[in-house]
Design a protein around this nucleic acid. Structure first.
Length: 621
RNA sequence: GGAGCUGUGGUGUAGCGGUUAACAUGCCGGCCUGUCACGCCGGAGAUCGCGGGUUCAAUUCCCGUCAGCUCCGCCA
C-alpha cells in the first residue's frame, strides 16, 4: 500500500488538536513526568521548561536562530536571540543536525502572525536561556524525516537512525499497544502467559531448523523452536488449561516480504474449550484490536468456508473476500464439446473451471500469450480463453464448441460483451489454483481497506507429497482428525478431514490452529500414516506419547502471526517495517553483520570443523 | 536452487559509445532579527557497486560477480 494510504489515525504526522495527548502511536503520557517536546501547548506558556532531544533542523538568521527540537513525542521550536547571552548564542551557532542537547528556558506564546498551524506545538516556542550540548553527531547518511525513500541497504545498516524517524516510532508504539491489548484481553479470560524453551530438540518434518551446537554434549545440537507447539500441548497435560505466549519462532527457509527467519506468534492453547469457543475468543480479540487500534467495528461472527469450497470457488485456501470474481464450473458444457484437452481432463476425473475477467476482452493476442505463459509459471499446462463479443465469441478454441455450448458457458459465467473468460482443466484443485492466482492478478486495483475476516475450516488431515511419495500433514502431525472420519484413517487417508482451521484476512493467512490429538493410540495411527514407525515415533516424540498416557485433556489452540497482523494495522507491505531490527531477504543483519564466522577456539570447544568457507572467505582451518 | 528489478558526489535522481558526468538536497565558508523544507552569495565533494570482455574510445554495449528488493520453488 502506498504510504499516502496509511491508516490516518495511526501514522498521521500531526493531529490538529491542542489538548495534551500521549506520544504518537498512543502510549500514555508518563505520570508525573514533565511534557516532552511534542506535548507542549499554549496552556504551558509562561512556564520554565527543560527539554532534552535531538536537533531536527537549524534556521540561522544571523542575529536570530531557530532550532526544531525533536524527541519521541514530537517537535517544538527553540529560539536563540543574539541580543541575549553571547556565549549561549555562540553555542547555538555550533549546533548541527542530530546533535543531542539539553535546553532550558521560558515557554512563550508566539505572536499571532508567527503561529505555525502545521505543528501541534505551533502556538508556542521555547526561548532558550541555557543550552548544553550532550553529544555531537556526524552528518547522518539520510534525513531523519517521514516519507523517506532511502536505499534499504543504508537504512538497515543505520537502523538506529531509521528508527529515529517519527513514523517508525509510531510503528513500534503500535506494536506495543497491540501486544498489550492481547495480554490484557487474554489475562481477562483466565489465560496465563508462560515462556517455553528457546533451546529445544530438532523434530522431523516442517521447516528446516536453526541448530545450536552443544558444548556440553559435543556432536549434539539444540534446535531453535519453529513454534512452541509441543511445549504448549505439554502445558495442557500439565493442567494449565489456558496458556498464551508472545512467542519468537525460528524457521530456516528462504524469505519473503512477509517472512523473516525469526518472527513472532501469538501462541494460544486451551483445554476443554473446543473449536466454537476458541473461534469466539479469537473473534473477540480481533474485535478488540480493531476497535482500539483502528476504531473499526467488525461484524461477528466471522464467516466460515470449508477448505474444499474455498478451493473450488476461489482457487486458494486463503481467499480475499473483498472482491467477487468467483470461479465457475464449466465441466458440463465442456464434456459435450469437441475440445480434447477438456474432455481428457474430465474423463480423468478432473474439472474444467473458468474465471471471468470483466472488460479484459480488449487484450491483444500478445497480452493473451503472455498471460498463458504466466499460467504455465503457475503450474498450468496451458491457458484456454474465450472473449465474449457483441453477438459472438473470439477464441482459438471456439470452433470446438457448438453455439449452444458457448451460450451455456456464457450463461454459467454470466459473461457480458467485452469479458474475457480464462479456463483451466485438470485435477480439480490444481486447475482451480492456477485460476485462483490469475484472479488475484486481475483483482480490482483499488480494493477497499476494510477487514474481511474468514475462517477456513475442514482442512484435510493429510496431503500427498509428490517428492517424498507419501503423505504429509496438512497442518501438523498433532492435529486431530474429525471423529467421524477416523475409520478412514488407514483405508482412505486423503479423505480424512481434520479439526484444523485457518484465520484469513483479506487474502492473508493470519494464523492457523486445530484441536489436537490427546489419545496416544490415535497419535500413533497418524504417525504411521506419515511414515513414522513406532520406533521412530518413540525416538522423537516419546515424551509426548508418554504424556498422553497420563490423563491428557482434550485441547486445541491457534497461533497468529503478530508481525503480519501489526503490518496490516500500520498498512505496511513488509513485516520488516514493524520489526525493530529486521534481517534482509538473505537472512543477514546489515547492522551487526550476523551471521559471522567464529574463532577457531569457539569451534574447537564445540567439537566442530568447518568444511568450506563462504564467498568472503572466513578464517581458514 | 531459479527468475526479474535496482546499483552514478553524503543522500535522492538525470544522463549518454567520445560530456569539464547534470540537477536537487545535504555538507563547509560568508551575509542575514521572525523563520518554520528560511533566504541570498561562494566553495568542496563521484576511481558512475566490483571483475572481465567488445571497441580507437565503456558510466553507457556484452558476460560474470557482489549487495538490496520482489516473485517462483521452499515455508508441518
Amino acid at each position: 500500500m502506498p504510504r499516502e494510504e496509511l491508516p490516518a489515525r495511526l501514522l498521521q504526522k500531526e493531529a490538529c488538536s491542542s489538548s495534551r495527548e500521549g506520544p504518537p502511536g498512543g502510549t500514555a503520557p508518563s505520570a508525573g513526568e514533565p511534557p516532552g517536546c511534542g506535548e507542549l501547548r499554549a496552556a504551558d506558556a509562561g512556564t520554565e521548561v527543560a527539554l532534552n532531544g535531538w536537533v531536527q533542523r537549524r534556521r540561522d538568521h544571523g542575529g536570530l536562530l531557530f532550532i526544531d527540537l525533536r524527541d519521541r513525542t514530537g517537535l517544538v521550536q527553540v529560539v536563540f536571540n543574539s541580543e541575549g547571552d553571547r556565549k549561549l548564542f555562540a553555542a547555538a551557532e555550533r549546533l548541527r543536525s542530530e546533535y543531542v542537547v539539553a535546553v532550558r528556558g521560558e515557554l512563550r506564546r508566539r505572536d499571532r502572525d508567527q503561529v505555525n498551524p502545521v505543528l501541534k506545538t505551533g502556538e508556542i516556542e521555547l526561548h532558550a536561556a541555557h543550552l548544553e550540548i550532550l553529544n555531537r553527531s556526524k552528518t547522518p547518511p539520510f534525513y531523519i524525516e517521514d516519507g523517506l525513500h532511502a536505499d534499504e541497504n543504508l537504512r538497515l545498516r543505520y537502523r538506529y537512525l531509521d528508527l529515529r524517524r517519527p513514523e517508525n516510532y509510531r510503528r513500534l508504539a503500535l506494536r506495543h499497544r497491540a501486544v498489550k491489548l492481547i495480554r490484557d484481553y487474554l489475562d481477562g479470560r483466565g489465560f496465563l502467559e508462560i515462556e517455553t524453551p528457546a533451546l529445544t530438540r530438532s523434530t522431523p518434518e516442517g521447516a528446516r531448523d536453526y541448530l545450536v551446537p552443544s558444548r556440553g554434549s559435543p556432536g549434539s545440537f539444540y534446535a531453535l523452536p519453529q513454534s512452541p507447539q509441543l511445549f504448549k500441548q505439554l502445558l495442557m497435560v500439565g493442567g494449565v488449561e489456558r496458556y498464551f505466549q508472545i512467542a519468537r519462532c525460528f524457521r530456516d527457509e528462504d524469505l519473503r516480504a512477509d517472512r523473516q527467519p525469526e518472527f513472532t506468534q501469538i501462541d494460544i492453547e486451551a483445554s476443554f474449550l473446543g473449536q466454537e469457543r476458541l473461534f469466539a475468543l479469537m473473534e473477540g480479540l480481533m474485535t478488540r484490536l480493531y476497535g482500539e487500534l483502528l476504531g473499526l467495528e467488525l461484524p461477528r461472527p466471522f464467516p466460515r468456508l470449508p477448505y474444499s469450497e474455498a478451493i473450488s470457488r476461489y482457487g486458494t485456501d486463503k481467499p480475499d473476500l473483498r472482491f467477487g470474481m468467483e470461479l465457475v464450473d464449466c465441466s458440463a458444457p465442456a464434456r459435450e464439446s469437441e475440445f480434447k484437452i477438456f474432455r481428457a481432463a474430465l474423463e480423468a476425473g478432473g474439472a474444467v473451471k473458468a474465471l471471468r475477467v470483466p472488460g479484459k476482452g480488449s487484450l491483444s493476442r500478445k497480452e493473451l500469450d503472455d498471460l498463458a505463459a504466466r499460467a504455465v509459471e503457475y503450474g498450468a499446462k496451458g491457458l484456454a480463453w474465450l472473449i465474449r463479443e457483441e453477438g459472438g465469441w473470439r477464441s482459438p478454441i471456439a470452433k470446438f464448441f457448438s453455439p449452444g455450448q458457448l451460450e451455456q458457458i456464457g450463461a454459467l459465467a454470466e459473461a457480458v460483451p467485452g469479458d474475457l473468460l480464462l479456463f483451466a482443466a485438470g485435477e480439480a484443485a490444481a486447475g482451480s489454483e492456477v485460476l485462483g492466482r490469475l484472479r488475484l492478478d486481475f483483482a480490482p486495483p483499488e480494493l477497499p481497506n476494510e477487514p474481511h475476516f474468514l475462517w477456513v475450516v475442514d482442512f484435510p488431515l493429510f496431503q500427498y507429497d509428490p517428492v517424498a511419495k507419501g503423505l504429509s500433514a496438512a497442518h501438523h502431525p498433532f492435529t486431530a482428525p474429525r471423529e467421524e472420519d477416523l475409520p478412514l484413517l488407514e483405508t482412505e487417508p486423503l479423505a480424512v478431514r481434520s479439526q484444523a482451521y485457518d484465520l484469513v484476512l483479506n487474502g492473508v493467512e493470519l494464523g492457523s490452529g486445530s484441536n489436537r490429538i490427546h489419545h496416544r493410540e490415535t497419535q500413533l495411527r497418524v504417525f504411521r500414516q506419515l511414515g513414522l514407525t513406532e520406533a521412530a515415533a518413540m525416538e522423537k516424540f516419546s515424551f509426548l506419547l508418554e504424556a498422553m498416557e497420563y490423563g491428557a485433556p482434550p485441547h486445541g489452540g491457534i497461533a497468529l502471526g503478530l508481525d503480519r497482523l501489526v503490518a496490516l494495522f500500520s498498512g505496511d507491505e513488509s513485516i520488516r517495517q514493524v520489526i525493530a531490527f529486521p534481517k534482509t531477504a538473505a537472512g543477514t543483519c546489515l547492522l551487526t553483520g550476523a551471521p559471522a564466522a567464529v574463532s577457531p577456539q569457539q569451534l574447537q570447544e564445540l567439537g566442530l570443523a568447518v568444511k568450506s568457507f563462504s564467498k568472503d572467505g572466513g578464517p581458514g582451518c
